[in-house]
Amino acid sequence: MADKARTVSKGTVRQTNLAWRRLGRAFRLYISRAQLAGAVLLAVLGFATTAQVQSLRADDEFATADRPDLIQMLDGLQQRTRRLEAEISELEQAKAELASGADRTRTAVEQAETRARTLGILAGTLPASGPGIRLTISDSQSAVTASLILNTIEELRDAGAEAIEINDKVRVVAGSYVLDGQGGILVDGLLIPPPYTIDAIGDARTLSTAMRIPGGVVDEVAQKGGLATVLEPRSVQIDSLHRPVAPRYARPAPEKESGSNK
């Protein structure tokens, strides 16, 4: 019995050794067709495995994440998208508001500038040029009085003169006054000696007609012994400026709610 057992164990040992020997022989360095075939196929296997692993690693973690994780991620991303979209729309609204605000501001500034120019010409704080007439009143006998000049100014205004200047020195504005003075007339405190040259910007034909109308300025001056001539130059230049003073008494009235004065 013991003998038999020994032979069995011996056999298994031999068999084990045989398997090891075969394995060892396979690992010895020698060239055979089997070795070459194994080499080629194993190279292909190694290459494919590495490529696959690398591609998975090159992909991101999503490729290996399981479904609940992916759903959670997707959910989070969707929430973020919604939040960011809301933010985008908010910002776009703000941008549109700012743009329209800027537009409004620019329009307001343009309107204000236009108005300032208009008012500047009306108030005599800006030089003006344009069509008009040049009325020259020569007065050798000191017969032309301040009231005649005032009349002339009124006539010019009636005829639509937009800017008036006397002797290239004084701009006639709403608050201008005319007085008789020594050796001439006083306009806004400034002595103007004759001859008087009145420049007026407006429709030249209307203005000259108003001057030449029978019984008008030209006639009146002629009656008093002076000589009035009306020229219609292509362009009348008015350079003298009125220096505005702040009103002492008048204040801007608080605007009414209807805002009629826009």
């Binding site: 020698y30 194994g38 194993l42 190694g46 495995t49 590495t50 591609s55």
Partner: peptide
């Protein structure tokens, strides 16, 4: 042995070439 070397060659080639799987 050559088969094992082949395996290593394949792995190293895969690592070096960084092939992108079509």
């Amino acid at each position: 042995m050559i088969a094992t070397i082949g395996l290593f060659v394949g792995v190293i080639a895969g690592l070096l070439l960084q092939p992108s799987v079509p």
